[in-house]
Amino acid sequence: MTSNGDATLKVVPVRHRGRWVGVGAALLFIAMLVHTLFSRVPNGQGSCHPGKGVATCWRFAWNDVGQYFTTSEILHGLLITLELTPLAMIIGIVLGVILAVMRLSPNRLLSSTAWSYTWFFRGTPVFVQLYFWLYIALLYPSFSIGLPFLHYVPFTHVAFWHFDSNSLFTPFKAAVVAFGLNEAAYMSEIARSGLIAVDEGQIEAATSIGMTRGQTLRLVILPQAMRVIIPPTGNEVISMLKTTSLASAIGVSELIGAATNIYTGNYKIMALLIVASLWYLIVTTILSVGQFYLERRFAKGALRTPPPTPIQRIRRDLRGIAAKFPTGHRKFAEVGQ
């Protein structure tokens, strides 16, 4: 090599010409999309409404979106969505973990019961299940808690608790039960994959120091399974947030139900669907941030150095930029600390 010893040789990176063409095309497309989002159209077209003395108005009816974004009916709908989602997820997660543990049981009856549950609830549309629970009274007019099968024996039927199906399964409760039981089928598979992912040696070690099976599950297996379970569960929560919109079909005025109620009166369909979608986006964004921190927490011990939080990353980037400036700009570097 002739350049041996010459430490000042400059590195010239490869030029990616094809990539620049792609970037150009993408930029053009984004510009066109943004333009249509904020363009105006003549009176009376699309979602635009005449009679306000304006010659043109937003194609996407942003003024209507702004007007309905925080109306009480929409906010009330949002609240119901925010009640339905966690209630259904709690049922789904708790039952899902139980089903996963059953599925892994050496007992054939327990494992096949769990398998059948997943088979049924995953194999039928959640929409059908929703109606099924709403109209459960057609199959079981009433429920009572007592001793099983004794109603076949005269004079022995004792019920400790008795209630009417129609009054029990209001649309809201039917939705919670339907979404929760359906979710359990999916959550059981997620939980099972997490439980299987924990190394068998962990179970042996727990057993060898005298932990019972329950302790081993609770103290050793589940905490480590969480690392595998959380990312897809976050996905499920976000999916559930939007699945709850199906409840509008059985008369629950959640976010989509509220939007529908309003636009059937005034035909501002697009504006109200945009309002609802923006709310879904906002909640999803908040949930994603929560998921990041939850994942970080349960990654304890699995990674030698946990990934930086976005705030830490921004600080690090600022420090990187600051380091490029000479000492006169040290103040800027300290801001990044």
Binding site: Q202, A205, T207, I209, G210, T212, P223, G301
Partner: peptide
């Protein structure tokens, strides 16, 4: 299960692959 566990707790075991609890 419980009786066996109490017997086991008096016998220490060290494994080839350590099997330390990774999350602790």
């Amino acid at each position: 299960d419980k009786q066996i566990c109490s017997e086991r707790s008096q016998i220490g075991m060290v494994f080839q692959r350590f099997n330390l609890f990774q999350h602790l």
